[in-house]
């Protein structure tokens, strides 16, 4: 159960080292339930490492992460059951159909045959891909593949959805559409979203944002408050001031 005053996600003093490189340094921030929380940082900031730690792909070296009260160190299975993930790199099996990909994920999360069928239909209907259920993933375009990955990530009804640079490689229109779809999940299904991006256009002023740079959290507040704190008029300027570098942008607005 999630208490209203207790954050759904607590990242606490997280650190991670690769041989010869400190990727994350005492990273701490919280995410409230039902929020669309942006994790902003340039390439190499440590976003994917953070995601790999939350999803238990990497062993935690320092600190801890709690999702819905489940600690990654003490109850990793319960934590994994609470998260759905869309990776930066597509993890769909191209030679299997959309339905077969989702079914595989449902099996791995212990869903019964009946429940899998029901959830697959529901989730594919939500992303408007029910008609494509028998198509091979290879036949889908990039935007549709991302939608399939979102449907798959939500199949076991997680409370937290992690998206790691999910719009990389998509055209601006598809990016905007995907961003809107994920935001609607927060409003309609109360799913908590952690959206990692290096593109400032994908963040709205009201969004809570954690700014990650060279493995450290520079700020964790709303985009609007970040501008106020830095005395700047836009998130672009705030980013520039805090990181001493121009923000990556593709020049489009959502």
């Amino acid at each position: 159960m999630t208490h209203s005053s207790q954050p759904l996600v607590e990242v606490d003093q997280l650190g991670h080292c690769y041989p010869g490189k400190q990727a994350l340094k005492q990273v701490s921030f919280n995410i409230q339930a039902g929020q669309f929380h942006a994790l902003l940082g340039p390439n190499g900031a440590g976003k994917s490492t953070l995601f790999a730690l939350i999803s238990r792909l990497f062993q935690v070296q320092q600190g801890d992460i709690r999702v819905n009260g489940h600690s990654l160190r003490h109850a990793p299975a319960a934590l994994l059951g609470n998260i759905g993930m869309v990776f930066q790199q597509s993890t769909l099996d191209l030679d299997l159909s959309v339905e077969q990909n989702l079914d595989y994920h449902g099996c791995l999360h212990g869903l019964s045959t009946r429940l899998r069928q029901q959830r697959i239909e529901e989730e594919l209907a939500r992303v408007e891909l029910l008609d494509a259920r028998h198509k091979k993933v290879r036949a889908l375009n990039g935007g549709h593949r991302r939608r399939v990955e979102i449907a798959r990530a939500l199949l076991h009804h997680p409370s937290l959805l992690l998206l790691d640079e999910a719009t990389v490689g998509l055209d601006p229109h598809t990016r905007a559409s995907l961003n809107r779809h994920v935001r609607s999940l927060c409003e309609q299904r109360q799913v908590t979203v952690l959206w990692a991006t290096h593109l400032i256009e994908e963040i709205l002023p009201i969004d809570p944002v954690t700014l990650l740079h060279q493995g450290s959290v520079l700020a964790s507040t709303s985009a609007h408050a970040l501008c106020q704190q830095t005395g700047t008029t836009s998130l672009v300027e705030a980013f520039e001031q805090l990181t001493s570098r121009p923000p990556p942008t593709d020049g489009t607005n959502l």
């Binding site: 999803s55 238990r56 792909l57 990793p76 299975a77 319960a78 994994l80 059951g81 998260i83 993930m85 990776f87 790199q89 597509s90 993890t91 769909l92 099996d93 595989y104 994920h105 791995l108 999360h109 212990g110």
Partner: peptide, 13 residues
């Protein structure tokens, strides 16, 4: 290629 991650994110041991 990354598809191993789907398997490893299962809550099973």
């Amino acid at each position: 290629m990354g598809s191993m991650r789907v398997l490893l994110m299962s809550p099973l041991p």
